[in-house]
């Protein structure tokens, strides 16, 4: 089925933005939330070293706007807490921050116009998310997240880095991989959406994920080297 032919015809508001029907928003948001939760569950079940729980947030923030993305972030973490308890509830702040950066980055600052810009935007999202996640991990969970990155936190602690620094160093690696992959998967999905819904977006065409993964590996190696030097420096 060609989705473009069945898409509703939307009118532009006086501000130049599309008037998306409320019922479309009300249905798109739960779909994005469910995709976040299922993505997170699958990443956990297949023991992937990333979270994959913000792809729906990126889609909604870019297509509907940053604050709709923030709502998806809140509903994702409250929905997760309805499934496996309130452990993920504090991380709603991370999801909200990611939505705002993705949304404003693409819609207000034109960071989705070219491939390098969009890559840089995902790196900014990863950094912002880490800055917000690290204090939550330290204060609520004592530095533990229960995933593979904790082993890296332990290594940084063993070489003399303090707890906050160790959590920041290990979290940024996971976060970079997660947000760059998530951002580009979102881009591919947005490209498949009806043109009438994405007409007001200035977005680059999606690219095969293989190339992005090579670039991601390069970034991760760079960050690992910097983190090791910083840890050794602080350890004396």
């Amino acid at each position: 089925m060609n989705s473009n032919t069945s898409a509703p015809t939307l009118k532009k508001s006086s501000g130049g933005q599309l008037n998306i029907p409320t019922t479309f928003i009300v249905t798109l948001i739960p779909v994005c939330v469910a995709l976040n939760i299922v993505g997170g569950f699958i990443a956990h079940a297949l023991r992937l070293p990333v979270y994959l729980d913000m792809i729906g947030t990126a889609i909604s923030a870019i297509v509907l706007g940053p604050w709709w993305g923030a709502l998806v972030g809140i509903l994702t973490n409250t929905g997760s807490s309805l499934i496996n308890g309130p452990v993920s509830l504090p991380f709603a702040l991370v999801n909200i921050a990611g939505a705002l950066v993705w949304g404003y980055g693409v819609r207000s600052f034109g960071l989705g116009r070219t491939l390098p810009r969009f890559f840089a935007l995902n790196i900014i999202v990863a950094i912002v998310c880490t800055i917000i996640a690290a204090p939550i991990i330290v204060l609520v969970f004592g530095g533990a997240t229960g995933n593979t990155a904790d082993a890296l936190t332990g290594v940084f602690l063993a070489v003399g880095q303090n707890l906050v620094g160790s959590v920041l160093s290990s979290n940024i690696l996971t976060s970079l991989a997660d947000k760059i992959i998530g951002g580009f998967v979102a881009l591919a999905v947005i490209e498949a959406m009806p043109r009438s819904l994405t007409a007001d977006l200035d977005l680059v065409k999606s690219t095969p994920l293989k190339g992005i993964l090579y670039a991601l590996v390069g970034v991760l190696i760079g960050v690992v080297i910097i983190a090791i030097f910083l840890a050794m420096g602080s350890g004396g």
Partner: peptide, 11 residues
């Protein structure tokens, strides 16, 4: 991991 990290680097 929480207990291991707290033994390595007390908060």
């Amino acid at each position: 991991s929480l207990l291991a990290l707290q033994i390595l680097a007390p908060a």
